[in-house]
């Protein structure tokens, strides 16, 4: 009975007819970067906004308490205070949107943030990140443990096997169970788009993930060879819009992997603005998963305020 209720949310007709034309999407992706640009004050304001979308991330084998602590501090003070003051933005409470770590480091992050006295959410990747090739039982357990440790956002990876073999109902069921395991925590579903084979599959997987109750859909783990690209993003954003038109529910979007420069982040902001509109430009609906991006943004803000380019030692490391 429970299963049949779950299935009632699944409507395969939403994905059965869909066709994505790859060359046309590639052309659109090329255009987006050339068609919009922001300069001067607009650029500074947009960059500060981009900071508030960042899921400041470290996903390395050598993560320890000390670098997690540094990360959390940087999340709270992402831009040097005097630079914010010069822009009259110091009272805006600009922090990154979240910090994102491996499940085993969630406790460290929660502790460090508490010590820093801030309420930034902790996100954790889970479900056999990055390959997802572990048993469903352990994957679900991983989610539960991360939530127990204090993570309020869970980035799960989907089972690519199910996509490539067209088992959409099974995929729906799995994500549905992740959803349940998350409890009140937000569920961000990583589609690992670099391994889905085609843009049509990206659209279908996006739709299934949203139907199954994801709060966010996320492009990639950052560990595949192909990460967040504009063509993939365009397809996912179109799926988000279609889902909104069908259900009235706004689902968030998170590109991750390979976003390193301030210029890139501006292009991502205008992509969201163009494809979904201003209402998606808030941390509840848009995140950028990145580790190196923040320092480049800070350098650009430094240049905007001072008119000079910063030396590496001018800005605190993260």
């Amino acid at each position: 009975v429970l299963k049949s209720i779950l299935h009632s949310l699944l409507d395969l007709s939403w994905i059965s007819k869909i066709q994505v034309n790859q060359p046309a999407v590639l052309r659109r992706a090329q255009q987006i970067q050339a068609r919009r640009t922001v300069k001067k004050e607009w650029q500074a304001a947009w960059l500060l906004k981009a900071v508030t979308f960042i899921d400041l991330t470290t996903l390395a084998g050598d993560d320890t308490y000390s670098n997690i602590q540094r990360l959390c501090y940087k999340a709270k003070y992402p831009i040097r205070e005097d630079l914010l003051e010069a822009l009259n933005m110091h009272d805006k409470g600009i922090t990154t949107a979240a910090v994102c770590v491996y499940p085993a480091r969630v406790c460290d992050a929660v502790k460090a943030l508490k010590a820093a006295g801030c309420t930034i959410p902790v996100a954790s990747v889970a479900t056999g990140f990055p390959a997802g090739q572990t048993h469903l039982k352990t994957r679900l357990e991983e989610v539960k443990l991360a939530v127990e440790d204090g993570a309020t956002e869970i980035d799960v990876v989907i089972n690519r096997t199910l996509v490539l073999t067209g088992q959409w109902e099974a995929l729906y069921d799995e994500i549905r169970q992740f959803r349940k395991a998350c409890g009140k925590a937000h569920l961000k579903t990583i589609l690992a788009t670099g391994e889905l084979g085609s843009l049509t599959n990206v659209y279908k997987a996006s739709m299934i993930a949203m139907m199954a109750g994801s709060d966010f859909i996320k492009t990639s783990t950052g560990k595949e060879t192909v990460n967040a690209t504009f063509p993939v993003a365009i397809v996912m954003l179109r799926a988000i819009r279609d889902f909104f038109w069908k259900t009235g529910k706004k689902i968030g979007f998170k590109p991750a992997g390979g976003i390193r420069s301030a210029k890139d982040s501006l292009a991502w902001l205008s992509l969201i603005k163009e494809e979904l509109g201003d209402e998606w430009l808030k941390p509840e609906l848009f995140r950028i998963g990145a580790s190196a991006l923040l320092s480049d943004i800070e350098r650009q803000i430094y240049h905007h305020v001072t008119g000079r380019y910063a030396a590496y030692h001018d800005l605190p490391m993260c």
Binding site: E41, W42, A44, A45, W46, L48, L87, N88, M89, K92
Partner: peptide, 9 residues
């Protein structure tokens, strides 16, 4: 410039 930035933000 600052107030403008706030507005655009």
């Amino acid at each position: 410039a600052g107030s403008r930035t706030r507005e655009i933000f």
